[in-house]
């Protein structure tokens, strides 16, 4: 430990020399690392946004139950009571004809004028039921079997599609994460192996003088970590820029997408990128260091 502290200047100088030794190759490795980490950051951002969307949809999952026209107020109350007792039901509300009309007006916005073409309110009174998404099938089945219920409308198809998209995104995310991990480790370890090869004479001499492999390898570890940390910082800056542009465009053109708070998202992504940089940098460096052969001059 003492020799590490006393030699920090030497280690940094040697790390710098290692990077400079194959400057062009290392510049390309560095650019490659930045781009890989940037792609990783974009995938994490996409993941974050889509997970939030699904979570919100799950929370907002609701179905509409329409009842027979001849029911009086007491029957309706009884119906609501029966629905409320079903497991998986979160909230039950009666939506009047007038409210249904207002909601559609809000949905249509500027196009709401089309509703004025109807002489009478075309909407029916219905029961709005918020449910656990995972319980959809069972809850619908139970409600459909309640006496007085005419039919149940659900948005299962849309929810299933969204879930399918999210699953695909997740799968792509896992693949990209694995690709980022493997590629980064290979790039860093290759860079270190190259440095070790170029410095083999010095390494052999240090081995003959009695230096431990950990002492000999420390500058290479620093070189690998410096490269990937700088790569992580640049990738983070690029990601922040991309998030700012993306938020500006999405909130203007597709305002109904529920975006997470920007600062929270940026913080989350930067922490992940920098942590991944440290882990992958250490992993790649250690992998590369394994190429220091015991007494290679033998």
């Amino acid at each position: 430990m003492k020799s590490v502290l006393f030699n920090m200047g030497y280690f940094l100088k040697e790390a710098y020399k290692t990077i400079r030794l194959n400057l062009l190759s290392n510049i390309f490795s560095f650019i490659g690392t930045v781009l890989i980490l940037f792609i990783f950051a974009l995938v994490i951002t996409g993941w974050n946004v889509s997970n939030r969307l699904v979570l919100m949809l799950k929370e907002e999952a609701e179905i509409s139950a329409y009842y027979e026209e001849n029911l009086d107020e007491i029957d309706k109350d009884n119906l609501i009571g029966l629905i409320e007792e079903i497991d998986g039901v979160l909230e039950v509300n009666l939506v009047s004809q007038a409210e249904a009309y207002n909601r559609m007006e809000n949905v249509l916005g500027n196009e709401a004028g089309i509703l004025e073409l109807f002489e009478e309110n075309p909407f029916e009174e219905y029961i709005e039921i918020r449910i656990h998404l995972d319980e959809t099938e069972r809850v619908i089945d139970r409600i459909e079997n309640i006496e007085g219920i005419e039919y149940v409308r659900d948005n299962r198809e849309i929810l299933n599609r969204i879930e399918g998209i999210v699953k695909t995104l997740n799968m792509a995310g896992y693949i990209v994460t694995a690709a980022v991990g493997i590629t980064t480790i290979i790039i860093i370890s290759h860079m270190i192996r190259q440095g070790i090869y170029e410095n083999r004479f010095q390494i052999n001499t240090l081995q003959l003088l009695g230096a431990s492999n950990s002492f000999i390898g420390f500058p290479f570890l620093i070189a690998g970590l410096l490269m990937i940390l700088c790569g992580g910082i640049i990738a983070s800056v690029l990601t922040v820029i991309a998030i700012n542009i993306g938020f500006g465009q999405l909130s203007g053109t597709i305002p109904f997408i529920p975006l997470p708070p920007k600062n929270e998202l940026v913080k989350h992504v930067v922490v992940i990128i920098m942590t991944a940089s440290i882990i992958l940098g250490s992993g790649g460096s250690i992998f590369g260091l394994s190429s220091i052969k015991e007494d290679a001059e033998r």
Partner: peptide, 14 residues
């Protein structure tokens, strides 16, 4: 200095 770098000498002593 390379002969003693890993022996825990302080930079001044080295």
């Amino acid at each position: 200095m390379m002969g003693v770098r890993f022996l825990g000498f302080s930079p001044k002593k080295m």
